[in-house]
Design a protein around this nucleic acid. Structure first.
Lengths: 189, 189
DNA sequence: GTCTATACTGAGATAGAC
DNA sequence: GTCTATCTCAGTATAGAC
């Protein structure tokens, strides 16, 4: 165990609470209690709530970069890699139906709060966007790779939002099938 | 002026704040101050914050029903009517880029808060869904009208979420054009 | 590094005078 | 119907003992 294991535990717990309850609705007491820490000790690690948010976003960015590298390694063709992105909706469907997309809901909340960390959260979207763009370039769609990446991001965001509202698992599967079909059509002949 | 004009003013103001700042981030003081009311007087009209939320959702539902009726009357074919829905993204693009979709962001927030009004907010989505479903039925897509309605709802939700995060006006226009194209392909030959 | 105690703020909500 | 004054509670944050 590294010496900053308590710190990591706080970030991990805050990450979960921010996702499940939202950033504003989560209090220091929530996080401290879940970590088994006193509120006083809590401030030893993070002076402000914004500092925790920053750490949470950094953690998510690191996790995302790792995920994208694993997808990169797990598949041999760009289309297969993009399919990994699409099927994330099914892999995480339970959480998505309960709390929506971790990136989309955070960006939306911080945007409404005019929070300084907004651009950092938006950077999580950018990680996916740039990775998808590269895959579409590999696929031979140099000219519109960015538009295709944004399109796919938007499709998956929409599915996440409606899945959260309607709690409809069949809908997710249906839309994933449509995206799979769409993807095949994007491969140049 | 009707006798409940103050009440209406409160609902209208709360509606705006809930959209722009979010439900949780909006305080009684915000609304009261914007209305030029004292906080004490405020409680004469609404006993709890949840009561205001309920009134705001009811107001939005009435507004939505009215909008759908106007779209119904303004166009002669179901495809044209559905186009009205799609182009709402452009008609409201300034607000959407700043605050996202009023329905999607509210549903998402209330879902995370486990708020009792969550199902009421989700009912706003249902109003659009049922209307779109009917238009697709008129279009001759009896068997998959609901799936098409959900698909279009999801597409527009995704566009709204990314537009809010990236503040990209060109992206909205691009996706609206894609949806227009998609719609034409859905018309049975 | 961890704790208790506490200050300070703003929130939702109430009572009662006018 | 409108106001001021006030209550209670939760949230962020600090000080200082151990």
């Amino acid at each position: 165990m590294p010496s900053d294991s308590t710190r990591n535990k706080i970030i991990e717990t805050a990450d979960r609470f921010f996702y499940e309850q939202g950033f504003e609705a989560t209090s220091f007491a929530d996080i401290a209690q879940a970590c088994g820490l006193s509120r006083g000790n809590f401030y030893y690690y993070f002076k402000t709530k914004d500092a925790i948010l920053e750490a949470v976003i950094a953690r998510r960015a690191a996790f995302t970069e790792d995920l994208l590298l694993r997808w990169q390694a797990a598949a041999n063709t760009p289309a297969e890699r993009i399919r990994h992105f699409i099927h994330m909706l099914i892999a995480n469907q339970t959480q998505i139906m309960a709390y929506g997309c971790p990136v989309g809901t955070l960006c939306s909340e911080l945007s409404k709060l005019s929070h300084p960390a907004q651009s950092g959260a938006c950077g999580l979207f950018t990680l996916f966007r740039l990775w998808l763009r590269q895959q579409f370039e590999y696929l031979g769609r140099r000219d519109d790779a960015n538009a295709l990446a944004m399109h796919l991001l938007a499709r998956s965001q929409g599915v996440a939002t409606l899945a959260q509202s309607f709690h409809d698992e069949a809908f997710i599967r249906q839309e994933v099938a449509l995206m799979d079909h769409w993807l095949i059509q994007q491969i140049p002949t």
